[in-house]
Each structure stands twice: as C-alpha cells, then as structure tokens.
Design a protein around this nucleic acid. Structure first.
Length: 335
DNA sequence: GGAATCATGCAAGTTACTTCA
DNA sequence: CGTGAAGTAACTTGCATGATT
C-alpha cells in the first residue's frame, strides 16, 4: 500500500499512478492518492471514469479543485462517489487550505472510521478537507463547480438537477435522535471523546455531528438563559424606576411639609419605619436624639432615624409624622 | 525550566438549509 | 404557490489548555 501526497507541478506524482492524468499547467494543485504500489493503478480519472467507481481494490486519487484535473463529467464533488465529501468538502476552490482544519482532520478520520457507513464504498477511507475562499467561510458549491469548469476551459454549466444534487443537503435529525441527544445533554452538557463516539454509534451519526449538536445545544441554552436574565433585569429596572418615582414623590411631600411647618428646630429625631405591605415610610416612634443618624434593617421593616442633618429636613411636630401604616393606606386611597 | 509547536476542545458568530405559518 | 421568519445543522475563527519536542 502506498500513500502519496503531491503539491504542485509534479507530472507523475505517484509511482502507482502512472496511468493517471498528469498535473497540467503551472497551477499549484493538490493531489492525494492511495493505492497498491504493485497494482495496475487506476484512478478516478479521465481514462477510467466509471469503471472503478466504488471499488476499494483500486487506488483512490483525490484531486482538490480547481487546479488538479478533474474528469469532465464529474461536475460535482458528489459525483466522485465520496459521500463524505458532501458533508466535509465545503467552500470554494483552493484559494486557501485551512491548516487548522486539516490538522483536525485527523480526528475526523478517526471519527469517520469509527462510524463507517455500511453503504459507503469508501468507508475505510474518510477524511475531512475544508477549503474556502475567505475568512467569512462562505460556502458555495455552485461557485466551486462553475469555477472549476472554467478552469478546465469548459463553458458549459451543470444542469439544474446536477446543481441541486451537489448542494449540501442539511441533515435533519429524527425525533428519536433529538430526544436521545436531549436526554444526554440533560445528564451532561459536555462529552468526552469516548462518550461522543458511543453516542455517535448509538445514533448512527458521525462523532462530528454529535460534537456540533452539543456545541449548538450549549449555545441555545446560553442564549435562552441570557433572554431569561434579560427579562429579569428588565423587571428589576421597572421596579426600581417605579420605586424611584415613588420616593421622589414622597420627597416632594416632605419638602412641602417642611415649607409649611417652620417650627422644627426644637423637635427630637423621628424614627421612620417602612411599611412592609406598601413600602411607604411611616413614623413609628421618636426614640433617638437629634444627632443620631444610624439606620437599621429589621426583618421587612426598615427603621430609619431621621434627623435634620441627615435628611435635610426641618424638624416638625412629631405628630405630623406619626402615621400608622393603616393611616398611610387610608391616605393613599384618598389620594 | 522555559519556549515553541501541535492537537484538541469550546465559545462566539455566521451561513445556509428546512419547515411552517 | 411564493415568501419571510424561525429553528437549527454545519461551518469559521479565535482562544485556551495540555502534551510533546
């Protein structure tokens, strides 16, 4: 078995691919092949198109478009009969090979091999290559094909049906799969590689799909939590706004009292308490001296010692502040 | 021991496909 | 039947971390 990798202008990159097409022109292509060194190497190419598709006995040559030659009739990746390409080979013609993704492709190989499709003719050889044009990761299979054909000097476009078939079909998880994944997520929101593989096997999905599902699920959870938090904060904000409005109003009332009652200096400090039900301030006792300014919180009732210095209010006749919560309620109802 | 490199996982953001009103 | 919105699978990018050199 020989595995060969060629980048660039090598006319005959692989010894076992003597009969394969040559890398033409000066364009930098990417060519990869797998095959028996002693075999009468035939590749998926112009010369033997259609006669060895799906044969695992024959070497496989992978040409990454557009610069490596591709058989004329193979206008889509799907037609290369690598089903995994429809999932993994995305993006646009080899403007850039993502080294990062490629290095991660090792995992994808392991993943894919762990879950090989019984129907796949290349189930023992799966690999992930991702090529794309720019950092935004725009994917466009039609563009790939059209540009590829243009590179080969082929002005004819693929038919609509061909274009439709080449478009990456988005997998829709079954209800059972989704439910199972949901249950797994409830138990654990992250998976270790073993769990990932086990889940993939159990659900007949690729480990990468499990991984992506969990990533997306975590993102959804976070998004929902953010929405809940946002809603809560919004309500808090509304409550505080209302509280502020109420306190402003109360302050105005107190200032009005101050203006109407000039005889305040001789009076002792007044202790106010917050009514737990309406949260309005009410005077309960006058126990402290005028110098005191401490405040305490006891249960649901806040006791605030009010002095002329800490409130900026004149001392008035304590009787004026001596409203019980019931009285304040009555006052509110009247107003 | 520390720097460089590599592999891996994840979050965040994005794209594009599917479904449904 | 066409269309827009919503849901979501799949993707890219960047960063963090641990292992290895």
């Amino acid at each position: 078995m020989e595995l060969a990798l060629s980048l660039g202008e090598t006319p005959k990159p692989f010894t076992f691919l003597d009969k394969s097409q040559k890398i033409v022109g000066n364009d930098l292509g990417f060519c990869m092949a797998l095959g028996e060194t002693s075999a009468e190497g035939k590749t998926i190419g112009k010369e033997n198109e259609g006669e060895n598709k799906g044969s695992s006995d024959l070497p496989i040559q992978l040409d990454l478009m557009p610069f490596a030659p591709v058989p004329r009739s193979q206008t889509s990746f799907n037609k290369l009969h690598f089903p995994w390409l429809t999932d993994n080979l995305v993006g646009e013609p080899g403007k850039r090979l993502d080294v990062n993704r490629r290095s991660r492709g090792v995992e994808e190989v392991d993943d894919a091999m762990a879950i090989s499709s019984p129907n796949s003719t290349v189930s023992s050889f799966q690999m992930d290559f991702s090529i794309y044009r720019n950092g935004r990761g725009k994917r466009d299979f039609e563009t790939v094909t059209v540009e590829c054909e243009a590179d080969r000097g082929d002005s004819s476009r693929a038919s609509d049906e061909e274009e439709n078939s080449m478009a990456r079909k988005k997998l829709r998880l079954t209800k059972e799969q989704s439910a199972f994944l949901e249950d797994s997520f409830k138990e654990q929101s992250t998976l270790n590689p073993k769990q990932k593989l086990a889940l993939a096997k159990q659900l007949n999905l690729r480990p990468r799909q499990i991984e992506v599902w969990f990533q997306n699920r975590r993102a959804r959870t976070k998004l929902k939590q953010t929405e809940v938090d946002c809603e809560y904060l919004k309500k808090c904000c509304e409550t505080l706004t209302e509280e502020n409005r109420r306190l402003q109003k109360e302050l105005q009332e107190l200032r009005a009292l101050k203006a109407s009652q000039p005889f305040y200096m001789q009076l002792p400090a007044t202790t106010l308490s917050m009514c737990p039900s309406c949260e309005r301030v009410a005077t309960t006792t006058t126990t402290t001296t005028a110098a005191a300014s401490a405040s305490t919180v006891s249960g649901r009732t806040s006791v605030v010692t009010v002095t002329p210095s800490n409130m900026g209010l004149p001392l008035v006749n304590p009787k004026l502040f001596s409203f019980s919560p019931a009285q304040i309620h009555a006052q509110q109802a009247a107003s």
